[in-house]
């Protein structure tokens, strides 16, 4: 006997699954709506020019000042230090895993690297404050207890697995025939890796870097714990600074009344952060699409 198929039931399932898929889309739309709608009153009080070009950030003190550059400065200082750590170490470990490691070693190390990605960021934060910071203080006694260097190093360590894993995927996608072509010309293993595989995987590796840096920019817990709460225009990594994310935490946990201009700053800073990471993610996508290497006839 044939099963009787209930068309209405099928349609309901279809609609239900569609709605589930829409939840994340709607959430994103909701977040953007909130960020923008809450930022509008802020920008009615503070000009966009003052916000984007002002070099003093002091919404919580008198006289108030709303120049976001010190927060951007802090964010990019930490992200820059993180990139200096994560790019060479991430790329190095990707080259090792993709080109050098025997299958067995690769299968052991890769999951361990990925565990790093699963450690809660609060743990990293305390690791920065209680392990890295004392070392920095020992080496540079003039360093502040809360400093950009410690947070930057640990954010860098945190994004290594991401940079490494995405770069490795790009390198594994390079056809074996290109490696053989280089070996057949007398290249050493290192020359094959550096002169053929890495350039051939360039687009994937670059987008891995950008996504890693984007992740560093958005990182909150480590910088809140270890980098300080002093918005400052500085390039000195030993200084205490404040990032955009850490500022948002500070105000969100504080007792600024809802609707006050102090509270609205959170949304303006949040919107700025959102735009930056969005642009970086789009850039990563463009690079990996536009510059995706087509390996011709090679397998």
């Amino acid at each position: 006997m044939l099963r009787k198929i209930n068309d209405n039931k099928e349609r309901l399932i279809h609609i239900g699954l569609f709605l589930i898929a829409m939840i994340s889309v709607l959430t994103t739309a909701g977040i953007i709506y909130t960020l923008i709608s809450e930022s509008i009153p802020f920008f009615q009080n503070v000009s966009l020019k003052e916000f984007l070009t002002g070099t003093r950030w002091a919404p919580l003190f008198q006289p108030q000042s709303f120049g976001v550059l010190p927060l951007l400065n802090g964010t990019f200082l930490v992200a820059g230090i993180a990139a200096l750590i994560a790019i060479p170490l991430g790329l190095g470990s990707a080259i090792y895993l993709s080109e050098y490691a025997p299958e067995k070693v690769r299968k052991t190390i890769k999951p361990i690297l990925e565990i790093l990605a699963g450690i809660p960021t609060i743990v990293y934060g305390y690791f920065a404050l209680s392990f890295i910071t004392p070392i920095i203080k020992f080496l540079f006694p003039q360093a502040n207890i809360f400093n950009a260097l410690s947070a930057g190093i640990v954010v860098g360590i945190m994004i290594i697995p991401m940079v490494s894993s995405l770069s490795e995927d790009a390198m594994l996608a390079v056809p074996q025939s290109l490696r053989e072509g280089a070996y057949a010309l007398g290249a050493t293993k290192f020359e094959v890796a550096i002169k053929v595989v890495v350039p051939a995987a360039f687009s994937g590796i670059t987008s891995a870097f950008i996504l890693g840096i984007s992740r560093a920019i958005g990182e909150t817990m480590i910088v809140t714990i270890a980098a300080g709460a002093t918005p400052k225009m500085t390039l000195n990594p030993l200084d205490s600074i404040q990032t955009m994310t850490a500022y948002i935490v500070q105000v969100s946990l504080g007792d600024t009344p809802h609707g006050s201009i102090e509270h609205q700053t959170v949304y303006a800073v949040g919107l700025t952060l959102f735009v930056i990471t969005l642009l970086m993610n789009i850039l990563a996508q463009i690079i990996s699409r536009r510059f995706r290497e087509v390996y011709g006839n090679a397998r």
């Binding site: 056809p175 025939s177 290109l178 053989e180 072509g181 280089a182 070996y183 057949a184 010309l185 007398g186 290249a187 020359e191 002169k195 053929v196 350039p199 051939a200 290497e293 087509v294 390996y295 011709g296 006839n297 090679a298 397998r299």
Partner: peptide, 30 residues
């Protein structure tokens, strides 16, 4: 060194994703 003296051409063309010039110059540069 063996491979400098004994070259190889493969079943499927496998040029490097580089310019024509860089492909030919690759070996001599090494």
């Amino acid at each position: 060194e063996v491979r400098y003296h004994i070259g190889m051409v493969f079943q499927k063309p496998n040029p490097f994703p580089k310019s024509i010039y860089e492909n030919v110059a690759f070996g001599p540069k090494l």
